[in-house]
Design a protein around this nucleic acid. Structure first.
Lengths: 131, 131
DNA sequence: CTTGACCTTCCCATCATGGAAAGGTTTATG
DNA sequence: CATAAACCTTTCCATGATGGGAAGGTCAAG
């Protein structure tokens, strides 16, 4: 399989496959005489794993750890769970930060009459000195 | 005031003040003979405005628009409100995406016994082909 | 044999921020 | 006055994950 075929099969762009190779997240594939990368079915599995982990918000560094656990038949599920829980805590923090922004903004937007008048609590809040 | 003093007073780093100047978000300040940037109290207000908007998650591009509305005594509050509501929608989308990741991960983590055994639903899910 | 669809590498851009280097200025202190 | 500390200046580089595009080589079908 050429890179385009694996890309399509794994939903990871060719661009990203090359990038993952360059940063050592995946091993360099073999090449044809012309220098084309050659892939196999197991590479599709690997890339799908990566893609799925990305979709769950894991960073490439975390994925690196997940992959090494995936590869290790001796792994303890506790190690995987710990990684997942760290990531959940991270998601929680981000969600909380965004939610706080949202709450403040909604309050401000509700206070803004939103008509032709220049008077606006949103701008007033932005301009107010914080204590 | 030198840049360090404004930075402290506005909670915007000197680095960022120079950057905002370079991208035209704020106007270039006057300089001393030695080339030091000179700022005044109103610059502190401006930078605090920017900082506050950043804290609320507005992008620099959105802040550019907010600033031009702030500067415009003829603005309609509706214009500000519209910007805020667009941003709220954006926050909602991001919160929803993160929450979905979180939900999935929590389910997986709960299913993982998290002990010494290698057996792990989290890795199984990551490795499973998506339909 | 040409055309189009692949592939290659390399460079650049995003977004907001920070680090560090190499050098000039100002201020306080011995 | 000399020197050191604490400023300031510009310029280059890095982050994280991704994409765009250029310039050029390869392969398969018409």
């Amino acid at each position: 399989m050429n890179i385009g075929a694996v890309a399509q099969a794994s939903s990871v762009s060719a661009k990203m496959i090359r990038h993952y190779e360059s940063i050592g997240l995946i091993r360099a594939s073999s090449r044809t005489l012309a220098g084309y990368r050659q892939y196999h079915e197991r590479d599709v599995h690997l890339l799908r794993f990566i893609r799925r982990a990305r979709d769950l918000g894991f960073s490439l560094d975390q994925i690196r750890q997940l992959l090494s656990l995936w590869d290790d038949p001796e792994r303890a599920s506790a190690d995987v769970k710990r990684l997942a829980e760290l990531h959940i805590a991270d998601l929680d923090a981000r969600i909380a930060a965004l939610t706080e922004m949202r709450t403040t903004l909604v309050t401000l937007a509700n206070a803004c009459h939103g008509d032709h008048r220049p008077d606006c609590p949103i701008l007033q809040d932005l301009a107010a000195p914080r204590s």
